[in-house]
């Protein structure tokens, strides 16, 4: 299980990296944490002719902002940066909660936030966060930088809006100020395994009713999904088990789930309802 040969480029600035990537004629691939790409290369399922290694680009390794203003996460920020909340408020607490379900400790030391989004594994926790909260992606190329909303960024399994010569350089997460409550529930065979189903919920509850809500699910279909129809149902309802059970049924109806060796469609759909209910209940608790 040794990878096929490739040419290795190690830029030290973003400009250099973009130029290098643009210059790669075919089969160029950006290498960030490598925790998904390199296994695929070792199995020779991925065989890029050229790797452009972003690890020298310290300019992409920063988190700024806070829960009130929203945060800017550089693409090269490692998962482990969120082991302890890097700022205060519900958004940071959510990120610190979610990161614990991403693979395992050594993988989190090396894997990157941007790499996860660009890889677009349907079971990626960060992809679910981006899709549910409505992140904005910054895609750079030699031609300049464009922004793409999360809803338009994830196109399918391992497929995004990124063009071959583009690099995801930063991700903006919108504010989640004090007063928002969060819930995240993931079910996998063993902790750290790929999610068989997971749900993320953010709620504002006021006067015994849900005032504002965001709900997303991941690991169940080809991409993470924000469930706007279910959000619309929840708005104004009391945050009760009965409401959440109904929401779970609506969520099951809203998503055509996929099957794999660990979960048939029937089982995954079943799990989908459970994770939605549990994420909502956690947020409301």
């Amino acid at each position: 299980m040794k990878p096929a040969a490739f040419a290795y480029l190690a830029p030290t600035t973003l400009g250099e990296a973009l130029a290098m990537l643009d210059g790669v004629q075919d089969d160029g691939k950006v290498l960030a944490g490598g925790q998904s790409l390199v296994p695929a290369m070792n199995f020779r399922l991925a065989r890029p002719a050229t790797l452009v290694d972003l690890n020298g680009l310290s300019e992409l390794d920063h988190v700024s902002g806070d829960s009130d203003r929203g945060v800017v996460i550089g693409a090269l920020v490692r998962h482990a940066a969120f082991h302890a909340p890097p700022f205060e408020g519900p958004l940071a607490e959510l990120l610190a909660k979610v990161v614990r379900d991403i693979a395992h400790y050594p993988i989190r030391q090396r894997g990157t936030f941007g790499g996860s989004l660009a890889h677009a594994d349907p079971a990626s926790e960060w992809c679910l966060v981006a899709a549910t909260l409505g992140a904005t992606m910054h895609l750079a190329s030699v031609a300049g930088t464009r922004t793409v909303a999360a809803a338009d960024f994830f196109r399918g399994t391992f497929t995004t809006a990124l063009a071959p010569n583009e690099i995801l350089v930063r991700v903006d997460l919108p504010p989640l100020p004090a007063g928002w409550r969060t819930g995240f529930y993931e079910f996998s065979r063993r902790k750290g395994d790929f999610a068989l189903a997971m749900a993320l919920a953010t709620l504002q509850i006021d006067g015994g009713a849900i005032r504002a809500v965001r709900l997303g699910v991941g690991g169940v279909s080809d991409r993470p999904r924000r469930l706007e129809t279910v959000e619309a149902f929840l708005a104004g309802k009391p945050p009760t088990p009965a409401t959440f059970a109904e929401a779970a049924e609506l969520a099951r109806g809203a998503v055509a789930v996929t099957a794999d060796i660990h979960a048939s469609e029937a089982y995954r759909s079943d799990l989908l309802g459970t994770v939605v209910r549990r994420a909502l209940a956690e947020a409301a608790a």
Binding site: G34, Q35, P39, I107, Q109
Partner: peptide, 25 residues
């Protein structure tokens, strides 16, 4: 050689990482 078993774990700048998922270069 795909980052799961951890037998190759080493420290790089103090952090434990999978040595099968990093290239020597």
């Amino acid at each position: 050689e795909h980052g799961v078993c951890g037998a190759c774990t080493v420290l790089v700048d103090g952090r434990p990482v999978r040595a099968c998922l990093m290239f020597g270069v």
